[in-house]
């Protein structure tokens, strides 16, 4: 588990840490974490967020929720691009109904597609002299 701290070269294979609010931490590949739009923005090297600098995302969710979320993101990166003919296993079997409501709220926040307004090259100059 090579925790590569040189965040300037953000390769999709390096590991990032996701923390739950009750002290569990999960290590996932960057490309897995960036399957979530929210985490992608948090970890974006263009932003100045602390998450991006430390490669660590704290989530205000319980451990079990974060675990399932990471599990889903792994599942998503693995199967999202497969050709239509191939069978995708049913993720629902891996979820317990007890956490469904809580997970739904977390999913609503983390699994959405959020776009950070990224600056175009012509804007970068402009920002530098503001």
């Amino acid at each position: 588990m090579a925790n590569n701290q040189s965040s300037s070269t953000a390769s999709s294979e390096e590991w990032v840490r996701i923390l739950s609010n009750d002290g569990f931490s999960y290590l996932v590949k960057r490309k897995v974490a960036t399957a979530s739009g929210t985490l992608k923005n948090m970890l974006s090297t263009e932003s100045n967020f602390a998450e991006a600098a430390s490669n660590t995302c704290p989530m205000s969710e319980r451990g079990i929720i974060v675990e399932k979320l990471c599990e889903y993101l792994t599942f998503k990166t693995l199967y999202e691009k497969v050709p239509p003919k191939e069978d995708i296993p049913d993720f629902m079997e891996r979820l317990a109904p007890e956490i469904a409501l809580e997970l739904l709220m977390a999913a609503d926040y983390y699994d959405g597609v959020w776009f950070l307004h990224t600056s175009r090259p012509d804007q970068v100059d402009r920002r530098s002299w503001i």
Partner: peptide, 8 residues
């Protein structure tokens, strides 16, 4: 691809 929310 099913979103986690829709699965939930």
């Amino acid at each position: 691809f099913p979103s986690l929310a829709s699965i939930c």
